[in-house]
Every structure is written in structure tokens, then in C-alpha cells.
Amino acid sequence: MASGGSGRTATAGTAALLSLVFLLLQVSAGAGAGADCHFPAVFNFGDSNSDTGGLSAAFGAAPPPNGRTFFGMPAGRYCDGRLVIDFIAENLGIPYLSAYLNSVGSNFSQGANFATAGSTISRQNTSLFLSGFSPISLDVQSWEFEQFINRSQFVYNNKGGGIYRELLPKAEYFSQALYTFDIGQNDITAGYFANMTTEQVVAFIPELMERLTSIIQNVHGFGGRNFWIHSTGPIGCLPYALIRRPDIAAVKDKVGCSVTYNKVAQLFNQRLKETVARLRKTYPDAAFTYVDVYAAKYKLISQASKLGNAPWPMAG
């Protein structure tokens, strides 16, 4: 498991979680892009649950044993193999997403990844080195996306083709692409790690929803029409969270997860689900899919023996 930029290792995704992901991806395609599920590109925003190299490019490579079970070496992911976003790319038949911040060997022809480990929806008034949370918050990722559109299309259209057209997306891909969001977990843990009470953490969830809504509105303004939005996972099952705030972790459920942490995660997810519902009404020309990652991950944890002790991803 990884926590922001802390370097803790997460395990690879499991068949149970991926089956849910693929099923919902097909539902999303049927709702917004045709049942054939032909998204020519994916643009991702998030934290270490979906970071394919952003934090490594900016602040130093993720060290071993990250990447050992699939890539055979560290591959910018804070886990030992692939992330859900990698399996989504495989399922869509497109290359793994290159991190926007990675200047060497990147291919953006079918999407880009703006996620960095440790990222939050809100801006953090601290540094990565002090807190472990990335300065590349969701609004920064949004600015990067805007620059990517403008600069990539200028280069695509004005550099005479050749290698640039092999590495950059076609203009129409921005309206046809799948836009994925997996972020929010670190906002909750950042609040608790700053010694906030549960009431204080809960109190800023509406502001997080407003910020997220604003970013999605911006993406819609640039042509985005297919949105895939992950809920946050059962934070109360994360060892690093339990250790940092033992007072919050004191009361545990039968699985050994913090009741308080998980209640806050569930409240966050309920507000997120309501936010997605409002976005559907506001933008009837777009498809919004809310993905219940919490239920999938908690099932993997609580039924580990039934599922063959399969490892599960729980990054930040």
C-alpha cells in the first residue's frame, strides 16, 4: 500500500476488483459512447491509486520493490504491478498512460496521466517533504491538462507532422476520450494527520465537492463528455492511517478496520455520488459513471480467505 509520496508499497489489482471495473466500463460506454466501448484515449486525474509516473518524474523514482511482479522493475507506480488505470487501458486497447510530467519516452497519442501520488482535491499548505502530500493538487492537474491541450495541438498542427503526430493526440480525441478521476482519499487523511477532529474533517467535504465539480466543469468546457469517477476506498483499513491516528483507529470492525475512518470515507462517497447526480442533470450531453470502489475493496479485504487471499490495491 502506498500513502502519497511515502514510498509504501501497494499490491497488484485482483480479479474481483477488475471484473467490477470492466463491467462498469462497458456500462459507461453504453451510456455515453456507444456499446462498442471505443474510447480512443483516456485522460486521468488522481493520486497514487492511478499515478503511472508523475511523482517519480518530479521528485525521484519510486524505489524497489515497486513494479516487481509485472514490470520487473520500478515503473513509476506505487505498487508492485499494474494499477486499475493500466487494466482500463488494456481493456480499451490503448497503451498504458504516460505521465504528463515524464519527459523521457512518453507517448501521449491516446491519452495522458496527470495524477501524482499524494495528490489531493484541495491545496495543501505544506510541502511533500514535510507532510508526504503532493503539491500537485487537482487544480494544478487541471492547469496541466489545459496546457496539454493547447500545446499538443499547436505542435501537432504546426511542426510538419512526423514524430509529433505519432506521439500526440488528434484534436477530436479530446471530445471522444474517457476522463477518469480517482482522488479524495488523501484529503481525508491529510485532515486527520493535521490533528483535525472528525467533525472538522467532515465539515470540509462540501468544499471538496465544489472544487471537484469546478474541475469537471472545466474539462467539460474543453470538450470532455465521458466521465468515470471513483469513490474513495475504505481508508480505515490502511495500516499507515491507523498508525498515524491511533485515537481515530481505536474502534474497529470485525475485519480490523477503523469504524470512524470508514464512516467518514462513506460520507465522502455519499456526497460524491450526489455530486455526480447533479452533474448528470447539469450536463445531459455527457455521461457520468460513479464507480463504487469502496465496496469492491472492502469485499476483497473482508473476504480475503474466500477470494484466495488475493492482494488488493489501496494506494494514495
Rank of each mutant, 00 (worst) to 15 (best):
G223P: 01
N195A: 13
G316K: 01
V293F: 04
D187I: 05
L242D: 13
A58Q: 08
G308W: 00
G54Y: 01
F39C: 03
K254D: 15
F39W: 03
R211M: 14
G118V: 05
A117N: 03
S6A: 13
I121V: 14
D247K: 10
T14H: 10
A41L: 07
F174D: 09
V27M: 12
Y164Q: 06
T260R: 11
F22C: 13
C79L: 05
K170T: 11
V251Q: 13
K263P: 10
V251A: 13
I235K: 01
A304E: 12
A12V: 11
C237S: 03
F87L: 15
G221C: 07
F268C: 10
Y164K: 00
P65D: 07
R82M: 12
D247T: 04
A31V: 12
W143P: 06
L307W: 02
G53A: 07
Y173C: 13
V84S: 08
G221Q: 05
I136A: 02
I243Q: 13
Q124A: 12
M73A: 13
L55Q: 09
Q141S: 07
V21S: 03
N218C: 10
G184A: 04
A177R: 00
V255D: 11
Q153G: 11
Q266N: 12
S6C: 11
Y261A: 09
V42S: 01
A2W: 02
N158R: 00
S50M: 11
P74Q: 02
